[in-house]
Computed example of a mutant assay.
Amino acid sequence: MTLSIREIQAPIADEMKVFEQKFRQFMKSEVMLLDQIMNYIVRRKGKQLRPMFVFLSAGVCGPIDESTYRGAALIELLHTATLVHDDVVDDSNYRRGFFSVNALWKNKIAVLVGDYLLARGLLLSVDNKDFGLLKIVSTAVREISEGELLQMEKARRLDITEEVYYNIIRQKTASLIASCCATGACSVGASEEVVQRMHQFGEKVGIAFQIKDDLFDYGEAEVGKPLGIDIKEKKMTLPLIYALNQAGWMQKRQMINIIRNQSHKPKKVAEVIAFVKDSGGIEYAQGVMQRYVEEARLLLHEFEDSSYRTSLEQLVQYTIERSK
């Protein structure tokens, strides 16, 4: 049975409450419009998985301190900046069921808000001389941008290898969770080797997290993401890549043609979903996801047993058993 976020959060419940107050403080602005938008962003925050990874990773490596709060805030500020910019790039009006910043205040304001969040994060680190944290998180933001652009470049061809797929998700998704875990370790003064180990742990969790997201595209459940949306958006996911690799030349060509030219037709999307399921793409992706989770667990078990480690393990389980 999967535990709830509240149960997993138990060892850091007090820290998360304090973090929420501190984060509001970090986002404050004297410009009324900006302050209004910041309040809107704070109110619609999701499950807070990223700060949880930071605090639990810090707890595994040493006593949580002020630097940990700043590290978690830095991640949230820079990540929120990328999301606000993403919604402009994708021309998206919704995020997590709420109106996006660009939907309510238009693109020009949304871009400036993203820039403001980025600057707040950078200054928070520079003012407190948290250069180690800044390097970890800035590297992740660079990798996220590179991953997005690599995906756009490859999407035109629709015939990517598993190796390219892993490169894309390692940068696009896994680098952020990896930076959360490395930031937690770094914030409590862990050695370079330990910070690196936590980074590896987070990367493996991040890859498993993305494969779980890929699988939602083929599920019947209501998961907050429309069925077949990745196919409609011509995104090459692991179940589909595997299915195409198993197919004969003719069938492969036929499927790629549907994705390229007919993915706006629900009947055709259903055809691709059926093809992936019949080819064993779902089982294959589930197997790969479990392998990454197991590798992450082994890395985690190199650390001393504690309530933080137990919760971190539960959080990993939660990321692959979540329903949205």
Rank of each mutant, 00 (worst) to 15 (best):
M152C: 05
F98H: 13
D87C: 04
K267G: 13
S125D: 07
I169R: 02
K252A: 02
I144H: 02
I5P: 12
D278A: 14
N128Y: 15
A182Q: 07
L56I: 01
N245F: 11
V60L: 05
D115M: 02
L298C: 09
Q290P: 00
G121C: 09
V113Q: 08
F275P: 05
G132P: 02
G184H: 06
Q36C: 13
G184L: 08
T310F: 02
I8A: 01
S125P: 08
R24E: 07
L298G: 09
Q254V: 01
V18L: 13
S67K: 15
S279F: 05
K324P: 05
N107E: 13
D65W: 06
K212A: 10
R156F: 11
D159N: 15
K45Y: 06
V223R: 02
V164W: 05
K204P: 07
N245K: 11
R6G: 04
E146V: 00
Q25G: 13
Y284W: 11
R44E: 03
G281A: 10
D230H: 06
E321A: 14
V113T: 09
V31D: 09
F26G: 01
G62V: 02
H79G: 12
P63G: 07
Y69V: 11
D91G: 10
S4A: 06
V60K: 03
D35L: 11
S125H: 06
R170K: 00
A140D: 00
D130W: 13
A185S: 14
F99E: 08
I259N: 12
Y308W: 02
T237I: 03
E313T: 07
L227C: 05
K232S: 15
D127W: 14
I12K: 08
A10V: 05
N257V: 01
V88M: 02
R157E: 14
G228Y: 08
S187C: 06
R70C: 05
A296Y: 07
V316Y: 00
L158I: 14
I136D: 13
D217V: 00
S138E: 00
L117F: 09
W105N: 04
F55R: 15
I5F: 13
E271L: 10
K234V: 10
A73K: 06
V137T: 10
Y69L: 09
E271W: 13
G287W: 13
C181I: 06
T80S: 15
A182W: 12
F53A: 00
L299T: 06
E20V: 09
T68Y: 00
I168P: 03
S92Q: 05
G248N: 15
H85N: 00
N128T: 10
I144S: 05
A185G: 11
A13M: 09
M236G: 15
